[in-house]
């Protein structure tokens, strides 16, 4: 699955599958620049998500924790 671009919808789906529905915010809304913490995802939820991204997109994200928002995470994956 190399050369595949990850969209915001892909990320929404993966977040739901790996870390469940966040508490406190609606994933379907405009979340591109919302902090993951405000979406209800803590560092371990992001670690779990990063592990899935590494498998599906053949990237090597060490710490997704550094990406604070969906936009930043998409940039990291799509730049790899």
């Amino acid at each position: 699955m190399t050369d595949r671009t990850m969209t915001l919808d892909d990320l929404r789906r993966i977040l739901l599958e790996e870390a469940g529905a966040g508490e406190g915010a609606d994933l379907d809304g405009d979340i591109l620049d919302t902090d993951f913490g405000d979406l209800g995802y803590d560092s371990i939820a992001l670690l779990e998500t990063a592990s899935r991204l590494n498998r599906d997109y053949e990237v090597e994200i060490d710490t997704a924790v550094e990406a604070r928002t969906p936009r930043q995470l998409l940039d990291v994956v799509n730049a790899a």
């Binding site: 599958e17 870390a19 469940g20 529905a21 966040g22 508490e23 209800g40 371990i44 939820a45 779990e48």
Partner: peptide, 8 residues
């Protein structure tokens, strides 16, 4: 339970 708790 909230969906957030299910995968963990």
């Amino acid at each position: 339970l909230p969906g957030r708790l299910l995968p963990q």
